[in-house]
Design a protein around this nucleic acid. Structure first.
Lengths: 339, 339
DNA sequence: AGTGCCTCTGCAATCGATTACATCTGATTC
DNA sequence: GAATCAGATGTAATCGATTGCAGAGGCACT
C-alpha cells in the first residue's frame, strides 16, 4: 500500500474541498464542469489513486466477490475463473480467487474478513457451520452440499451420468465399468449413483473402481481393468482427466480404443477433443457456469438493501440449472462381439 | 460486507475497552490472561470477525499480494497459482488472482488500488508506464519486459530452446521446424531466437511457423507441415499445448510420431506425460516458480521500512533464475533415413 | 513512607475516503 | 425588489479498527 497521495492533496492542488474531489470522481455530474476539469487535472498531476480500504470502510462494501475452489491447480476450474472474472468485471466488481483447502484455519478463517461482498463456492467439502456462518450472499457452483443454506448453479450430474450409460448401452455394451471420483465428493457420489441407476434400469450389474478424478487414477484403473478376467467393454470415468489417463494407459498396454473398450469422460476439457482417439464425454458449459454463478451472486448482493442484512440468503429454490450434453467422439464405438 | 458485530460490541460484552480487545487478538501476550480469556469468550459469543478495511486503513497495508496473469484459462498458470497461494498463506498473506487482460482500464486500472502490498506479474505485455506507476514491490514471473523496473523470476528461455535443438540434432535431425508463439510475446520471441541460434550453430536453416501456444494452433501447423514438399523431421513447439495439438493432428493425418517426425514441447504440463506418445519437452518447475516469486516479493515488501517507501524496487539485479531441464520421452526418436 | 519500575488497561487520535446537511450564488418568477 | 428554487460547494461526522501515551495498581527496595 504505497498510496502516498491522498484525496486531500488533490483537493489542495485543485483549490477545492475533499468532498468536491470525491464527487468529481464518483459522481461527475454533480460537479460543475470547470471544477471537474480542475480536479481531473490535479488527479493526473499528483498521480492520485484511491485508497480502497478507506472507501470500503466508509461504504461498507468491497466491490469484490470471492471465488473459492478446492484446488487451484485443477484445470477444470480455469475456464470458470476466466468467465467469472469477465462477468464480474462487467459489473464493476473485482474477483478474488482462493484455494479453499489452503486457508489458515484460525481467526480469519478462509481469508473471509469483509474483503468480499459475495462468494462463489466451488467446494462442497467445507464445514457447513463455517459456510453458513459467513452470512454473505453465496452461491454454490458445480459442487454443492445440502447443508449449505445457499442456492446452486450447476448441471444435473445424476442425469448426465445416465446419458453416458444410455450411450454405451445403445452401442451394445452390456458389461460396464465406472471409475469413480473421491468417496466424499458430492459430484463423484452423484455421478456414481446416476451411473448405477441407469445401468440397473437396463438389468446390468456394473463394476465400480475408485479413483480421484486425476490422470494418474485413470491410468491405475486401466491397469486394474487390464488384469480382469472378464473385461468390461464400456467404461464411464467420473472426469475427463481420469478418462484420458485410462485411455492412454490402455493404449500403452496394447489395447485398442474403442475397438477393445469404449470410454466416456465427464467435463469436456480442451484436451478431450485433441486426444487420439478424441474423447466422448459429457459437456459442461463451464464458461456459462462461471457467468451464471456471478450473475446470481450479484443479484443476491443487490437484494441487500441494508448492507448488514443477509437479504435473500437461503433462497435455495432460486438455484440455476445448466444443461449438460453428451458429445459423441471417437473413443466410443460398438461393443466387440462376445468371445 | 456483513460484519454487523464490531470490536466495540465485543469490548462491551467483555467489559473492557476496544483497545484491549484489539490487543487480545493481535498481541495476546500484551494482555492479562484473565482478560484475554474474557475477550476470547466474547469474540466467540458474538461471532465477531475483524473488518479488514478498517484494519488495512489504519495499518496502511493489506496483507495481500496480487497475482496478475494474462489469461486465467491458460492451464499453464494453474500450478503456479496453487504454489503461490500456498507460499503466501505460509507467510500469513492472502493472494488475489486476476486477469490482466480483462481489467477495466479506467481510474482504478487493473484493480490496483491499494488492496495489495505487492504484485507478481505474469504478463509482459502491459504498458510499462502503468506497471512502473504502481510503485509497489513487484516481481516478474515467467514473462517479462525490459521496460519494467523490477526483478524477474524464471527460466532461461533462450538456453532451453537451445537444449531442444541439441536434442533433435543429436538424434540426427537436420531439417527443423519451430512452431512459434504470438509475435509480440517475449517468451515466444526468446524461444524462437534460442532455437534459431542453436540451429544456425549447427549450420542448419530451419523453418518457422507462427502460432499462439494453443492446441488449435499446433494442429493448424501440423496441417501446414503435412503439405510441405520437404517435411522437416524435427519440430520444436513453443508450448506443450501447441506440441500436443501438432502431434495429435499428425497422427490423425496418418503420420507416425516419432517415426515420421519428432516433436519437442515446452513447459511440461501434466498431459505431456500422458499423451500417446508421451511428449519430450522442456520442464519448467512451475511449483518452484510460484513459490520463488512470492518469496521474492515478500522480501521486497519487508524491505519497505516506511509503507510509502518504494524500497528496493528496481533492484533488477536481484532476479532469480530457475533451472529448466529437458525431459526425454517418446515423442522424439532418430531421424528417419533421407529418402 | 517514599521512590522507582513494571504490567495491564483505557483514552483518544488516527488512517482516507464518503456523504448528510448547511451554505452560498445566481437565476427565475411574481 | 422580494421570494423561491436549483445547483454547486464546503463543513464535519462517520465507517471500524490500531496504537502512542498516560494513568492505575502492584511490588520491591531503600
Amino acid at each position: 500500500m504505497a498510496a502516498r497521495v491522498r484525496i486531500k492533496d488533490v483537493a489542495t492542488l485543485a483549490g477545492v474541498s475533499t468532498a468536491t474531489v470525491s464527487r468529481a470522481l464518483s459522481t461527475p455530474e454533480a460537479v460543475g464542469i470547470a471544477t471537474r476539469e480542475k480536479v481531473m487535472e490535479a488527479v493526473k498531476a499528483t498521480g492520485y489513486r484511491i485508497n480502497a480500504a478507506a472507501r470500503d470502510l466508509r461504504q461498507r462494501r468491497a466491490r469484490s466477490i470471492l471465488i473459492l475452489a478446492p484446488n487451484l491447480s485443477n484445470t477444470f476450474f480455469s475456464r470458470i475463473f476466466a468467465s467469472a472474472q469477465e462477468e464480474a468485471s462487467a459489473e464493476g466488481l473485482t474477483v478474488q480467487i482462493s484455494d479453499s483447502r489452503n486457508a489458515s484455519s484460525g481467526f480469519e478463517a478462509l481469508g473471509y474478513d469483509g474483503r468480499a461482498d459475495g462468494i462463489v463456492l466451488l467446494d462442497g467439502g467445507i464445514d457447513p457451520e463455517v459456510v453458513n456462518g459467513w452470512r454473505l450472499p453465496l452461491i454454490q457452483l458445480s459442487e454443492w452440499n445440502d447443508a449449505y443454506d445457499a442456492p446452486r448453479v450447476g448441471i444435473d450430474n445424476h442425469a448426465a451420468a445416465g446419458m453416458a450409460v444410455e450411450h454405451l448401452v445403445s452401442l451394445g455394451h452390456r458389461s460396464l465399468l465406472h471409475v469413480n471420483g473421491p468417496d466424499a465428493n458430492v459430484l463423484a457420489i452423484t455421478r456414481r449413483a446416476g451411473f448405477l441407476e441407469a445401468a440397473q434400469a437396463h438389468g446390468l450389474t456394473p463394476e465400480v473402481f475408485s479413483g480421484d478424478f486425476t490422470l494418474t487414477s485413470g491410468a491405475e484403473a486401466a491397469r486394474r481393468w487390464a488384469e480382469m478376467a472378464d473385461r468390461p467393454t464400456g467404461v464411464f470415468c467420473a472426469s475427463d482427466e481420469c478418462a484420458l489417463g485410462f485411455m492412454s494407459e490402455c493404449i500403452r498396454l496394447g489395447f485398442d480404443v474403442p475397438g477393445d473398450v469404449s470410454v466416456v469422460g465427464f467435463d469436456d476439457i480442451e484436451f478431450a477433443d485433441r486426444f487420439v482417439p478424441s474423447l466422448t464425454t459429457i459437456h459442461q458449459p463451464r464458461f456459462q457456469m462461471g457467468r451464471a454463478a456471478v450473475k446470481r451472486v450479484v443479484a443476491m448482493m443487490q437484494g441487500h438493501g441494508d448492507p448488514g442484512d443477509p437479504g435473500e440468503i437461503g433462497a435455495t429454490e432460486r438455484s440455476v440449472r445448466i444443461d449438460a450434453t453428451l458429445v459423441k467422439r471417437a473413443s466410443t464405438g460398438p461393443a466387440p462381439a462376445r468371445p
